[in-house]
């Protein structure tokens, strides 16, 4: 059991379900709730976060032996903040519409617990390669939930998916789903279903 948990395969896969940052650890819920009113916003937010996560993991795991333990958090934050600013400026310059939609939540990635959490828990103790695998898994898990939640809310709230109308005129959009209330409802339902599946698995 313990041995299988340390395989590279598991190191990646754990981020998708077993240790999914949103559904299991309930980390980084601020962007999850704030920007998932459409699938494309969820995707953009997920990609930006994953970029920051992956880049900071690479840097931190490669210089992990140089950073004195006492100043590791300031060092981590400097590195994370740098990549967040890079991502923010990149979106503003090349995808201005998405940048406008995401608003202040891109700069806020810097305080996303997933990123600092992975650095503290994993990258500062593991090799660069393993950190990349771990961060990619976490990032993909984060993106999947964000896109799924964004898609769920967009379909019900705007009758479209990635901006393409998928439900016909017969469907009256559920306004609440693209409002903040819909974010809480949607996330609650997602976490509930995840727990329900786990419960059934555990019993089986």
């Amino acid at each position: 059991m313990a041995k299988s948990k340390t395989t590279l395969r598991y190191e990646f896969l754990k981020g998708l379900w077993d240790e999914n940052p949103i559904l299991k650890s309930l980390l980084g819920l601020c962007p999850v709730l704030a920007v998932t009113n459409s699938a494309i916003n969820g995707l953009a937010m997920g990609l930006a976060t994953t970029f920051v996560l992956l880049s900071s993991s690479i840097i931190i795991s490669s210089i992990r032996n140089l950073i004195p333990n006492q100043v590791r958090i300031p060092a981590f934050i400097v590195i994370i903040a740098t990549f967040v600013t890079v991502a923010d400026r990149f979106l503003a310059a090349f995808f201005p519409l998405i940048s406008k939609d995401l608003g202040p939540y891109v700069p806020l990635i810097v305080v996303n617990c997933i990123i600092l959490g992975r650095q503290e828990a994993f990258s500062s103790k593991n090799s660069v390669f393993r950190s990349i695998i771990d961060s990619s898994g976490m990032g993909v898990g984060f993106i999947l939930v964000l896109v799924a939640l964004g898609g769920f809310r967009e379909i019900l709230g705007s009758a479209s998916l990635f901006g393409v109308t998928v439900l016909g005129d017969w469907f009256q959009p559920w306004l609440v789903m693209i409002l903040p209330g819909g974010a809480f409802l949607g996330l609650g339902i997602f976490i509930g279903i995840a727990n329900w599946i786990n419960d059934r698995r555990a019993r089986a």
Binding site: L66, P74, A75, V78, I79, T82, T85, V86
Partner: peptide, 18 residues
């Protein structure tokens, strides 16, 4: 030293990106 170097590298990178 570590923090100074780190912030300087970060600052340089950001000004280039800006």
């Amino acid at each position: 030293v570590v923090l100074t170097v780190l912030t300087m590298v970060a600052g340089g990178l950001l000004s280039y990106w800006d």
